[in-house]
Design a protein around this nucleic acid. Structure first.
Lengths: 322, 322
DNA sequence: GCCCATCATAGATAATCATCTATGGTGCAT
DNA sequence: ATGCACCATAGATGATTATCTATGATGGGC
């Protein structure tokens, strides 16, 4: 039996014939002519090398070999129906996998979105990679993931972006800081104090530094800590001041205060970034759709800034068009 | 996904590519050129409507859709390997079904052959139909069975025959019959006695009657009974005499004697008959082979008359040639 | 004995498959 | 930067598939 030229179509026809018990009847059901079905059947029998059907009082019934082929054909066709279902669910974004790389600060808020999403689409296998801006950028360049979350996007030549969340950077101080409670503070008043900074690859640091540069200011003593958590605790322990995303602060931060520095908060936005040159998996598309529709239920209203619909519109028909 | 033009070959190639993790490597293993495999892959991806593979650090790995297709393909190919095994075992005669129609008298001896055969090939599904000559002939004409056992074959225009067992017909009488123990008896001496005969469709009766005709003899009173068993018991009970196959007599028949009638036994042979116009199932062929080889171990030597090898030789290469 | 339905065969054709050779782009490793 | 391995694309070709129409054979029912 030479399996090479066996077509699924052939099996479909064969199964129909066995079910109908008649070539002509099968032909009618399949909207084919009777000779077509006859010939298909002959070819199949030749491939198998055994007679498949025999006539028993007017009805075609399978031979031993034909019966086995029938069983196998049915199983195989059912298996491929399953594949079709699976593909359909992939396309609907109900299943599949989606890998997201996000910058450190976003890890404080993204779970609010991903939690409900995961409950809605439990068959989607989500992977999160968390790093600072530079690390996420590297992943972007290596095309490691399907979605990227930056507050400052890479060159848009190779990417599309859609903002979805405000990310205000504020100055935090210990609760008992002398300037806590003031109406307004000038940054220059704070430059004598030590600032706790993230590592150089961090977006928070980058934004803060470029803001300072715009203002023509220079920091005094600094201390570098590679984690927002560490910095937050450090500030609470009076090691110094820091500029942090508001999202990093716990809802009740009794040991910290936000200083109302003039010109702050530094406004930035987190954005979902997708590569232009890479086809977006259906699951990732589904996640973006979910975010576009449900973000407002997941995060505080004051942070909302949902421009995902625009991103989706751009992706919809031409996933990889430039 | 249009399944119609999906070939098993295509799935084989796809599976090879996934296993190799490389198109070129798969091509080498399949003894194909690289572009061939590339193109097959493209066609498969088009049929499915999804990308199937993506490059991950130099190795091709499946996408979500590709993984599902790979699993399904493997299962399907394995299933058809099973079909091949099954066909091989069918062809070897180790499995399958075989329907045999046999004349009444043969039922006393055929089980001696079929018992060992069944133990040797337990996967073969044997069906026996037992009737008198006329009934078996009808089955033969309707092509109901694979093998037929007659003592007198039908026209050999549509059949091949192979003798395998002597079937001597003898006159039986009650143990205390006046002529029991004689050296030689003439049939004419017996014509005044009542003979117990089988029904008209019976071969035993037919052979007896044509023998009588040859001898120019005519029976006296008769009594018809449609069963060899009934006739045997009838003779033992002194209802009359009878002509029966020796095989019908139990090994120890203390209440019956065989009268040494001149010109008897009537010699006939049971034969396996196969239709020329019908392909013999492998299992039936296997049974004939088994019979050819093992008959001598199954029946008494004096009945042996095995010409099945000749029948098999005729069947071997051209099962349906005239 | 004739008719109807069923199946088989033959011949035709457009589509498709399964391959090849030749060539061009990309990216990693020297 | 040079080369090698890998993949993709293009174009060609013979085999096979999938389908048809037309016609012949067969077998059961009135």
């Amino acid at each position: 039996m030479n399996i090479r030229h066996l077509t699924f179509r052939l099996l479909q026809v064969y199964v129909a014939v066995v079910r109908a018990g008649s070539i002509s009847e099968a032909a009618r059901r399949l909207h084919l002519t009777q000779p077509t079905v006859s010939q298909q059947l002959r070819r199949l029998a030749e491939t198998v090398g055994e007679p498949l059907l025999e006539s028993r009082q007017g009805r075609l019934v399978t031979t031993e070999a034909g019966g086995e082929l029938y069983r196998a054909s049915r199983e195989v066709l059912v298996r491929f129906d399953d594949v079709e279902d699976y593909l359909a669910s992939l396309r609907g974004g109900e299943r599949g996998r989606c890998s997201i790389a996000l910058v450190n600060t976003a890890q404080y808020v993204l779970p609010r979105l991903l939690g409900p999403y995961s409950r809605a689409f439990p068959e989607v296998d989500l992977t999160l990679h968390i790093g600072n801006r530079r690390q996420v950028l590297t992943r972007f360049e290596r095309q490691d993931d399907d979605l990227y979350v930056f507050s400052h996007p890479p060159s848009l030549a190779h990417a599309r972006a859609g903002r979805f969340l405000r990310n205000p950077l504020v100055v935090v101080a210990p609760r008992d800081h002398p300037l806590a409670g003031c109406e307004q503070v000038a940054m220059s008043e704070l430059l004598g104090e030590r600032f706790l900074l993230r590592e150089p690859g961090s977006a928070t640091r980058m934004l803060f530094e470029s803001w300072l540069q715009e203002q023509g200011l220079t920091l005094g003593p600094t201390l570098q800590m590679a984690s927002n958590e560490a910095i937050r605790v450090g500030v609470a322990s009076r090691m110094g001041l820091a500029v942090l995303s508001e999202h990093v602060l716990p809802p009740e931060h009794s040991d910290l205060v936000i200083l109302p520095v003039a010109g702050l908060p530094i406004e930035s936005h987190w954005q979902f970034i997708v590569r232009r040159d890479r086809r977006l998996p259906h699951a990732a598309l589904g996640l973006l759709r979910f975010a576009a529709g449900h973000l407002s239920e997941c995060v505080e209203q004051r942070f909302l800034s949902n421009e995902l619909e625009e991103l989706l519109a751009g992706l919809g028909s031409a996933p990889s068009a430039g």
